[in-house]
């Protein structure tokens, strides 16, 4: 990376962005029916939670690295 030497510390937080990839692109984690929440089978509310989490993770990275 061209700018690693210029801002070495802040970019490390970008590794947090691997979490949503692992969490949502590996179906064996969530392709289940149970537990059901508010009528939603697991897969559906699990993905909904990840939508919120990805926003939170981005917000954290944004707050730290600007």
């Amino acid at each position: 990376m061209d700018d690693k030497s210029l801002r070495p510390r802040s970019k490390q937080w970008y590794w947090l962005f691997l979490l949503p990839f692992i969490g949502t692109l590996w179906p064996p984690f969530y392709a289940h029916e149970r537990p059901i929440v508010a009528g939603f089978p697991f897969l559906y509310w699990y993905l909904l939670v990840w939508v919120l989490l990805v926003g939170i993770i981005s917000a954290i990275v944004f707050a730290i690295t600007g």
Binding site: P20, T24, L25, L43, V54, S58
Partner: peptide, 20 residues
Amino acid sequence: GVTGFFAVPYTIVVFPIMFV
């Protein structure tokens, strides 16, 4: 059915890519 819901993980991972 559920196949169509690939759109959800798709629009989850797209934003970290955009951020970086």
